[in-house]
Computed example of a mutant assay.
Amino acid sequence: MKKAYLSYNSIISNLGFDSKEVVEKIKNEVSGIHIENDPQLFNEPCYASVIPSEKLHLEFQKLSSDNGYSRLEKMLLLALSQVISSSKISLNSRVGLILSTTKGNIDSLENDSESKSAYLSQLSSVLKIFFGFNTEPLVLSNACVSGLLGIVTAKRFIEQGRYDHVFVVGGDIISEFVLSGFNSFQAMSKFPCKPYSKHRDGITLGEVAACVLVTSERENLPNEAVQILGEGSRNDANHISGPSRTGEGLVRSVQSAMSEANLTEKDIDYISAHGTATAFNDEMEAIAFNRLEMEHIPLNSFKGYFGHTLGASGLVETIVGMHSLQQNTCFASLGFDEIGLSKPLNIIEKTTPKPLTVFLKTSSGFGGCNTAAIFQKVTQ
């Protein structure tokens, strides 16, 4: 069976427009979350991580002078273009494309309730046509596990021999629809989010686009490349929005990943967790990781840097995890202060040098979905 590697990667966010710039700011504990006061988005100021429109426009002009693309399309095209350019891979029939998103061009419905741009298949077609992919894109929209599930699915395509390379691109934007939706759940924080903290009071939303190449070829990999050792995805069917109180879905997805990787908890150097800073999610994760006997493993959430980027979160956080392994550095879980969970967790409070070889990435989302994947540093 072929092995699958995560290779070239890119991040488009409020922290920067390439992975290295973004990771350097995370290493220096710089957050992209700021107070936003845009009446067109929300009726009162709120904290969020929003990409400046003017910067996005200027960067996209370097790629194309066509102004007919939506905000999200520009973000996705920029992220994908960086990885296609870096990898120098010919887009033939052995190359796949996966798009991970939860809402896509949902903002197009604000002015036109019948806009075809809102269809996710239409969004994936924009990417296919722009770059000239020879295969039909696959759209994954499974709540907030979509980004990590895209990586998992690409791995399975590689193992099955369906493709030699798969580009996984993901993104979501902040829109009036998204903000009003989470506000109706009373899930939005009044300040920058504080994952796992005693005084956390909800999520901070963010927008990002990210892309990674999943490949069967071990040669010519970048320094931050990792191998996917194991993965698993389980649904606990608990509630349309609330996670399982016992962490059952997350536990089973991690167990599946550990079994495939043939590892024990002693082999995991650190965990990049979901960590939304809502009362129920963080508590569920603490219960699950204690059931898995992983409470001692250094753990962080990247939501304090990007906010919750929905369908792109698992993808962008995996990319940062790749760089974390390459730099042998555990990045701080920004916003954390005093633990506020019923079970102990080893939260990374300060960015710290540490020998790293293997990390576990987990994501959880609405509808009871949970995904886990284990990555190992590739020695050159």
Rank of each mutant, 00 (worst) to 15 (best):
L341Y: 02
L78F: 09
R200C: 03
K303A: 02
M322E: 12
S85E: 15
L341V: 08
L140G: 01
A154N: 10
V22G: 02
T309F: 08
T264Y: 14
I35C: 12
E317I: 03
N328Y: 10
S115F: 08
L341Q: 05
M1H: 09
E285M: 06
F191S: 05
D267F: 11
E295H: 15
E73S: 12
K343G: 00
V145E: 02
F182Y: 15
L292M: 13
C330S: 09
R218N: 09
I339K: 05
A286M: 04
C193Y: 02
F331A: 01
I12D: 00
E24W: 07
I106Y: 03
L15Q: 01
R200I: 00
P298F: 13
L213E: 14
F191P: 00
I51Y: 04
F17S: 00
S216P: 00
N37M: 11
L315N: 05
N290Q: 15
Q122N: 12
F191K: 07
T371D: 05
R71L: 12
G365H: 02
L325H: 11
I84H: 03
G181I: 04
M258L: 14
D112A: 03
E338C: 10
T357I: 04
I339R: 07
S363P: 02
S117M: 12
N223G: 08
Y69A: 06
L229N: 09
A261C: 10
A118F: 13
F182M: 06
